[in-house]
């Protein structure tokens, strides 16, 4: 059922050129919460400067999959991983963890502003990185602009971030992730708590930042996947049922299960 990289790249290629084409490669990933296996033998790649979306019903393992990409799963004590996750050909498990997470940023379903001011929310990540303090306010402005938030907050940078609207908070979280210049941005249902306007602002934003960033997004919303993503994968009960370019998945799904899901017959 699952689709190997060769199906997409069509010809036989050496590992080196795979690493050039793909920012992230996942090989034979099994994931366990204690004795419960949440992911079964997942192999999939994410292309550089593209948006890769994962869809699937609740509980199918999308978040679990996303969290292994920047090793967020290690915060869950009973979680255990088998298999390979390669970032630029190097296993993420060999990277220093904080440094990995700076390269692979993450935005969560519910916006999670720090209990700090708007300015500090973004400056914090920079300070952690040891960025020179004279550069910080410039970089904060730049990140807020990249996240299309600057105009809305430039007069209240010192105010608490919790005073922002849900959509603004989510863009703040994206700005915060962008501030440290990640190579990959992971988003776990970033719009599920937002209204249509908030959602479309984030979608526009994603299309802008993919110029400089590889994006992996998990979403419940199939229209969203269809609108923004270049590639789409469909998860069901911990298995990657189908992975292909977005157009094919939505127009000519090869699996009956995928077809049932995207036509709304279950899920």
């Amino acid at each position: 059922m699952e689709v190997r990289d060769t199906d997409i790249l069509m010809s036989d290629q050496s590992a080196v050129s795979l690493d050039q084409a793909y920012k992230l490669r996942v090989n034979g990933l099994n994931f366990y919460y204690g004795s419960f296996q949440a992911l079964h033998d997942i192999s999939v790649n994410a292309e550089k400067n593209r948006i890769t979306a994962f869809i699937g019903p609740s509980g199918c393992g999308k978040s679990t999959f996303l969290r292994t990409l920047n090793r967020m799963h290690e915060e869950t004590p009973e979680a255990r991983v088998e298999g390979e996750v390669l970032l630029d050909g190097e296993s993420v498990f060999d990277r220093e963890i904080s440094e990995l997470r700076r390269s692979v940023g993450m935005v969560f379903q519910r916006s999670t502003p720090f209990p700090k001011s708007i300015f500090e929310n973004i400056a914090y990540g920079l300070r952690i990185r040891g960025v020179d303090s004279s550069l910080i306010s410039g970089l904060v402005e730049q990140s807020l602009k990249r996240a299309n938030l600057w105009e809305e907050v430039k007069d209240k940078l010192k105010k608490s971030a919790s005073g922002l609207s849900g959509g603004q908070q989510q863009r703040l979280c994206i700005a915060r992730a962008l501030a440290v210049n990640p190579e990959v941005l992971l988003l776990d249902e970033p719009c599920s708590a937002l209204d249509p306007i908030g959602t479309s602002k984030i979608e526009e934003l994603l299309l802008e930042i993919k110029e400089s960033c590889t994006i992996v997004i998990v979403t419940h919303n199939m229209q969203q996947a269809a609108r923004v993503s270049d590639y789409t994968g469909f998860f069901l009960s911990g298995k990657l049922i189908e992975f292909n370019n977005t157009k094919s998945i939505f127009e000519t799904p090869s699996s009956k299960l995928t077809e049932d899901y995207i036509t709304g017959r279950f899920g």
């Binding site: 920047n70 967020m72 915060e75 904080s98 440094e99 990995l100 997470r101 700076r102 940023g105 993450m106 935005v107 969560f108 519910r110 999670t112 720090f114 209990p115 700090k116 914090y124 990540g125 952690i128 990185r129 979280c173 915060r176 992730a177 501030a179 440290v180």
Partner: peptide
């Protein structure tokens, strides 16, 4: 303190000790 604050901190590459002292304790 919500777990999400810790995860958000870790996700921008903050080491655990900074998450504890900069984010969790102040909250």
């Amino acid at each position: 303190v919500p777990k999400s604050i810790r995860e958000a901190g870790l996700a921008i590459g903050a080491p655990k000790w900074r998450v504890t002292f900069d984010l969790v304790l102040p909250a």
